[in-house]
Simulated assay, not measured.
Amino acid sequence: MENNLAAYTFATLGHTDRLAVFRLLMRFAPQGVRPTEMAEALRLKPNTLSHHLSDLTAAGLIRVARQGRSLFYSVNLDLTEALIGYLALDVGRARPDLLTSLSRPSRETPAMSDKIWNVLFICSGNSARSIFAEALLRDLGKDRFIAHSAGTRAGSQLNPFALAVLERNGHDTATMRSKHIGEFQQPGAPVMDFVFTVCDTSAAEECPPWPGQPITGHWGLPDPVKAQGTDAEKALVFAQTYGALRRRIEAFAALPFASLDRLSLQNRVDAIGSDAFLEN
């Protein structure tokens, strides 16, 4: 990366709100986000956000694509990689004392074929979508995973429609409960290998980096709790949400973990979380 381009991109990210926009988009990467959703999550006025998006786009840090009537902004991962590489390799001269903490494994792990993976699913309320995901991976994972779920909002309760869907599909719900994300951020909590957000609200939340550098992904789905209509119509929405998550969990559990490196795993996780995956 040329020095002038590096200086330009660093200067663009040097504004607090622009950096916040970029950080939010990184949490959704490689997927895009609508401006209205960004403005709500970051509590920015639409015209202010528009200026920041324009500056980030001009610097090449983000891209914009139109889908129907909506604009979706996403991170330019190629430039982001180049910028990080510039810091580490050019400015940092690849000094081992700067790079060791980034490149070394965070902890000793067993052989990939023998490993049992800790997986956390996060939603805003931990009442339906993340509960579906926890139950599905627990029961479809063939003892290769320890599934967890949590919500970013305190005081949530399991939704009765969600429980009915799980029980109808043969999942044991006796020990399931709604949990706050704080349970998994305490000393002694399980160290996660994968962390997935299954709603846009939780993905937009500012969260400290997870210990152990887990692979992260965004598998967002609409909130079935917001469904309107009769009980039968609501139950149908919950069943459809369960079905969409089941497809993703089945694909994830079937991945050949022993033969995939970290980058390949990240790419597979991103593909499973895409809209195209559910459409095929």
Rank of each mutant, 00 (worst) to 15 (best):
C199Y: 02
E37M: 08
R18A: 13
E81P: 05
P110C: 02
G229Q: 05
L56F: 10
K45Q: 04
I122H: 13
A94F: 05
V237W: 07
R268L: 06
K179W: 00
D231S: 12
G125K: 07
S202P: 11
E205Q: 15
I146R: 14
R34A: 14
Y8G: 09
G273T: 06
G182L: 06
A154F: 03
D200T: 07
N159S: 09
V64R: 13
R144I: 06
F10R: 15
R23N: 14
K115A: 15
T109M: 07
F121E: 04
S264Y: 06
L71V: 05
S156K: 04
L89H: 15
I215L: 11
D55Q: 11
D231P: 11
E108Q: 06
A162N: 10
S113A: 15
L5G: 03
S259C: 09
I146K: 13
G14N: 14
D231C: 08
T241W: 06
F121A: 05
E183K: 06
L221A: 14
P224A: 01
T80S: 15
L221E: 13
V165T: 15
A147C: 00
K45S: 04
V191H: 04
R153Y: 08
L44V: 05
V198Y: 03
E37A: 09
G60I: 04
I122W: 12
A82L: 05
Y8Q: 13
E108S: 10
L260S: 10
N267Q: 13
S178W: 00
